[in-house]
Design a protein around this nucleic acid. Sequence first.
RNA 1: GGCUUCGUAGCUUAAUGGAUAGAGCACCUGACUACGGAUCAGGAGGUUGAAGGUUCGACUCCUUCCGAAGUCACCA
Length: 606
Amino acid sequence: MKDIINDIQIAVAEAVKEIYKTDIAPEDFLVNPTKKEHQGDYTLVTFALAKALRQAPPKIAADLGDYLATARPWISDVEVIQGFLNISLGDDYWSSRLGEMKRDPNFWKPAMPKEKVMVEFSSPNTNKPLHLGHIRNILLGWSVSKIFEACGHEVFKVQIVNDRGIAICKSMLAWMKFGKDQTPEQAGRKSDHFVGDWYVRFETEFVKEYTLWQSTDEAKAIFEKRTDRDLDTPAFFKSYKNKYFNTISALGKEARELLLKWEAHDEETIALWKKMNGWVYAGFDETYRQLGVDFDKLYYESETYVLGKGIVEEGLQKGVFYQKNDGSVWVDLTDDGLDHKILLRSDGTSVYMTQDVGTAQVRYDEFGAKRMTYVVADEQNYHFQALFAIMKKLGAPYADGLHHLSYGMVDLPEGKMKSREGTVVDADDLMRTVIDEAGEAAAEREEVDDDIIRMIGMAALKFFIIKVDPRKRMTFDPKASVDMHGQTGPYIQNAYVRIQSILRRAESSDSGYAGYVVNEDEKLLLNMLGQSAGIIENAARDYSPAVIANYAFSLAKEYHRYYHEVQVLKAESEAAKNFRLQLIETIGVVLKNTMDLLGIEMPDRM
RNA sequence: GGCUUCGUAGCUUAAUGGAUAGAGCACCUGACUACGGAUCAGGAGGUUGAAGGUUCGACUCCUUCCGAAGUCACCA
């Protein structure tokens, strides 16, 4: 179904051809909904046409207005204000729009050429449970996937799990030393949190060890030899911590030895590693289930970290990369405004970039998606710029389809959220909190079942996060996130619930609404419903679910207003009642479908 | 220092280069014998960080500056 603006644009283009004998494309000029303070439904902005037609904008508006008002029966009235042509549409046109939406169940979404699209999101580490930052990531990734699906694409949702390295070894070591073969069940702890607890325990023990060491003669000697004389004792030991871990620490040594054993495929170590990661995955699955998301394929760094070496060798042969005397392999990205980037260390081992190059290729081989979106925080902007530049240099057929959906950090009101500062907001805790809050709000009303309370709480949380433009850093206000009034998920759910409540009470009637004169509020609503497909297209183009969140909110707001303005079941005529029932049902369809793109469920009652 | 992103009401934010910058929260007034008040109507609150420039028209584009964040590892 074409939207109204498109209809008008075509009519205008035809009028231009008729009057000025000039060809102009319908999308080369602007048609907007008319501002409330002016007469009319849609406004043609004629300034863009002025150059091509070599006429003054008001003249163009007048000419086109005269022509359209007589030649197009569905245009009932026109008015010229300076360079703006305000166009009013006839009643028949408006009510026929509603019928078209009824007939086409897909009217709300765009029809685009099908493409294969891959979206990578979440991508956690296995040593800690998911937190607020992951939630933003996951909601964005999930929503973008749903949006692409709505556009008609075939979407593959993947995540890459960082399951290797020193971090998980710390958890393993702490568990071996202090865990006494305990299991999550015995500890009564969600299994990913259980593993995270051992990571924290390791850090605690390490800090204890480090603090004790600081009063030894060895430490004092090192402090005296410091190069930066400005550092006082606490500042020096803060900066020395990493060095201490890698050189002197007994715990550090044990952890590094464990990593070496893992790399040597030591049987016992691998078994423990599998056991602990298994606990983590079971915990993650539960969190994902509560968030309402899933994946088509998981990649593990323990498998992918060896990838890419072959491609780098090839690139070296082709002269895309170069080798330094020490044997390390580099790429020169200065043409792209970047620096030189290393791809293979002098000992021949791979770096992060090598792995990403390899993983991209493997995924392309597996899925054949020429578009891949990486949902990763903006601290990695530079990395992805470099990665995409490298893929282009290598001539990968999918290089132009690579996209980094970069999003800003989530701040807490107190300051930056970092796990080491202990202000991390745990994903499971957060979800529990918002659902509890929804339960309390519901208790003041009437009893509602747990599933609906869950939907309401999750809607509050998800909408709060997703309504913000991904690029922007956002401040997470715990109090505002559980708010159910105003610009929130529950507000939109409430609009839907009101619609369903009316529809439940309505007796079916087939008498139709022929001859019904659509009022201004209804025109506005029909207009908004017609925009749905275009909005989704924009959201896909900009990789921005926030666009849809804002649209759904506006539509719900307009509906709430309408609800107070008119009676549906006790409408002034049978035609009015039928028209309005049809209208609000359609609003309900669009609300439910657009909110689904954000991963938000719509209850029938609340 | 180079590069990237962001700066809009007290707070959180919206606005393909189009008409008088639109909302929500908080604050103040009103509207329930209800198609569900998790709602609605109204009030107050803005030099869109600053200054130039381009344009018929700039929150939007360009330049310079100010402020915030990130990044510029043989870390991931």
